[in-house]
């Protein structure tokens, strides 16, 4: 295992800590918008996770996954915030 790979695994551990902090905010709230913000940020951090995984495994498959995940998370966030605004999706 080269030192570069060790570095990447350390990066994954730091990303795990970030995900834990997001999970803390999702579970504590206190309001619904707080949770939505944390879910949105969790999605972007997972994209970062996918990028590191792609380098470790040397497969571009993970980046494809990251692109799809980023776009889906964006649509989900916009949908949730429209719901919070308290009106339909047709505006």
């Amino acid at each position: 295992m080269s030192s570069f790979e060790v570095f990447l695994y350390v990066g994954i551990v730091v990303l795990m800590i970030s995900i834990y902090l997001c999970m803390y905010r999702i579970s504590r709230g206190p309001t619904a918008p707080d949770r939505t913000v944390a879910i949105d940020i969790l999605g972007v951090i997972l994209v970062s996770f996918c990028a590191v995984m792609a380098i470790i495994t040397k497969r571009d498959f993970y980046i494809t996954l990251a692109i799809a995940w980023a776009l889906l998370a964006f649509i989900g966030t916009v949908g949730l915030s429209k719901y919070l605004e308290g009106r339909g999706f047709d505006e």
């Binding site: 918008p33 939505t36 949105d40 972007v44 964006f74 429209k82």
Partner: peptide, 20 residues
């Protein structure tokens, strides 16, 4: 994709939270 979508999502969330 990220540079285009992330600020838009943040903008939508801020407005949603305010109107909530």
């Amino acid at each position: 994709f990220l540079v285009i979508t992330a600020p838009t999502a943040a903008h939508a969330l801020a407005r949603g939270a305010y109107k909530y």
